[in-house]
Amino acid sequence: MKAIRILTRGIRDALKSVFRNFSLSTAAITCSSITLILVAVAMIISYNIKNITTNLEKELTIVVYLKENRTEDQVATILNDLEHMQNVEKREYKSKEEWKLEMKEYSDTFSQALEFLDANPLLDSITVFVKDVKLLKETTEQIKTYDFVASADYGEGMAENLVAIFNVVEKVTIIIVIALVLVTAFLIGNTIKLTIFSRRGEIDIMRLVGASNISIRLPFLFEGLILGILGSIIPILVTIYGYVLLYDHFNGHLFTAIIRLVEPFNFIFYVSGLLAIIGAIIGMFGSYRAVRRYLKI
């Protein structure tokens, strides 16, 4: 019962203090709102990039063409080897006859051209899906070692560069998010420091009459928590409405159809939840630091 009383008193005092030092609280809330909006933007970018990269990686394949004079045994060998290769997820074999049929169906022009030729000018192909895109090059080189392989290619350059750029962007955004979070924690800590100073007299008396350390510190920790959570409200609204607007505006794609945005639902709720949690944690962290430093008991 006593613990509950101390707890409710802590929350009550914290709320009182938030309103009593209204201008200070507003400043802290505004600062953390701005930072959290930036955090939200960074989170949305980072998550989208992760999503795009994963999608791109899924679409990265090695296309292998076999030489015209390959034997059936050789086809069987390479298919078997590929099946047991470590980095290979799956492989799809299409013989030149299958290609021919497919092309004939595709258009009349192709059909007539192929009819005109006696021999089949096409080659057998194997599409190889890999498990780890980073090992794409190694796997391709390995496939090239068969002397009956005409070529093995994986959109060299473009795909690799895109993934590399996205990786850098993702890391940079993560660093920015961490820096912003620390700045916000510092700001909230500073507000709490000022409230501690403005309530010096009260704290002194609490100490003298024998209030326990926890009951002296709790209101300040709650105040940080409340400031953090209040600071996350505007960023949450911005995230929910802003992202839906953005998604609708671009029809879910950015520049090309390959770069797909993450669908807003439930993504925005997930981001909002995270923002509230981050706000609460940095509020608590900031006030904890201030209490540790300026509230010596």
Binding site: M1, K2, R5, R9, I205, V209, G210, A211, S212
Partner: peptide, 10 residues
């Protein structure tokens, strides 16, 4: 009353 509230009295 503050002195008693501070020590968590009802």
């Amino acid at each position: 009353a503050f002195a008693l509230e501070a020590i968590g009295m009802h």
